[in-house]
């Protein structure tokens, strides 16, 4: 379960993420909540072959979802990772 493709789930393509990558060379990924920063760093470096300077993460609780009933279920909890690359390194995510 520690393979890079298991840890890095998808890339976050949003206005905010585009802005970050453009201005600050930071890239936003959705990662497995179990992944730690070191694993993320290694995974990104292996996947894209770029040098990672820093990884910031934050956990998000999955949204509650209910359909007219008191007992709700919820979307999975998830983790966002903001990866800062070495200056000059770029990832083409589009």
């Amino acid at each position: 379960m520690n393979e890079p493709y298991d840890l890095i789930q998808t890339v976050q393509l949003t206005e905010k993420a585009s802005l970050l990558s453009e201005k600050l060379n930071k890239y936003v990924f959705r990662v497995s909540p179990r992944a730690n920063k070191i694993q993320i760093k290694q995974a990104i470096e292996r996947l894209f072959n770029k040098k990672v300077i820093a990884v910031n993460t934050c956990n998000y609780a999955g949204k509650k979802k209910r359909e007219r009933r008191a007992d709700f279920g919820r979307k999975a909890h998830w983790k966002k990772a903001i990866v800062t690359l070495k200056e000059g390194d770029k990832i083409d995510l589009v």
């Binding site: 976050q12 393509l13 949003t14 206005e15 993420a17 585009s18 453009e22 083409d92 589009v94």
Partner: peptide, 15 residues
């Protein structure tokens, strides 16, 4: 999705 109308970057649009 993820962008307001008119705010998506060119590459995304072209893709």
């Amino acid at each position: 999705p993820g962008y307001r109308a008119g705010k998506a970057p060119r590459q995304v649009i072209e893709k």
